[in-house]
């Protein structure tokens, strides 16, 4: 290997490390967006006389449990991957995917129940905030589901070929960590949002 390509190698290693760094900054940016939305919520709520109280449908407690559970399966998937147990990794990803989809379905059901209570977006600003904040969060879950799908497709193709050793490059390990970090992040983001709405909706 020439001097030059040695040098390039280290450039790539730096880039690899930088990638996880970039993810954390991106998560910070997402957090700022939700901070903006929730601050608007608080400011508006302090405006007395314009806020209609409502009860948060019980189904949102269930969806919260589901998304926490999906973080557990994601942890499992990470562990399986690290141990080189690719079939387990794939199955746990599939479980995570299923839980993620279930979460979205429960959210939609919850919105319908809220609407049935008479809290709709156009009439009630309290409801409008609820829909927009939880909706913006759901969009991030959707993005996470797309990422999960891609990773599942990748690993399924690879399992057939049966050479996991060579597959475990540091770049691929990093990708799994990045995917998992994002998934845990949006899970905990929901927990934060849910607690926020729970304590501030009335």
């Amino acid at each position: 290997m020439s001097e030059l390509s040695l040098n390039m190698q280290s450039h790539e290693e730096k880039q690899l490390f930088a990638r996880s760094f970039a993810l954390w900054i991106a998560l910070g940016a997402i957090l700022m967006m939700f901070a903006g939305l929730t601050s608007a919520y608080i400011v508006k709520k302090a405006d007395s006389g314009t806020w209609t109280n409502f009860t948060i449908p019980g189904i949102f407690y269930i969806s919260t449990l589901v998304i926490i559970l999906s973080s557990v399966t994601m942890f499992g998937a990470q562990r399986a991957f690290r141990k080189g147990w690719m079939a387990g990794y794939r199955n746990l990803l599939l479980a995570t995917l299923a839980l993620g989809a279930l979460f979205l379905a429960l959210q939609i059901e919850g919105w319908m129940q809220l609407k049935a209570q008479g809290i709709d977006m156009v009439e009630e600003i309290s409801g409008a905030f609820f829909y927009v904040i939880s909706g913006a969060h759901a969009a991030h879950i959707l993005g996470g589901i797309v990422i999960l799908l891609i990773m599942i497709l990748k690993i399924s193709r690879r399992i057939k070929k049966q050479n996991t050793e060579a597959y475990l490059t540091s770049a691929r390990k990093l990708n799994v960590t990045l995917m998992a970090s994002y998934w845990h992040f949006i899970g905990f983001l929901w927990v934060y949002i849910f607690l926020f709405l729970l304590y501030n909706h009335n």
């Binding site: 900054i25 910070g28 940016a29 997402i30 957090l31 700022m32 967006m33 939700f34 901070a35 903006g36 939305l37 608007a40």
Partner: peptide, 11 residues
């Protein structure tokens, strides 16, 4: 930029 533009998006 990273701390402020996302808030604009919220708006």
């Amino acid at each position: 930029g990273l701390l402020s533009f996302p808030v604009l998006v919220a708006g």
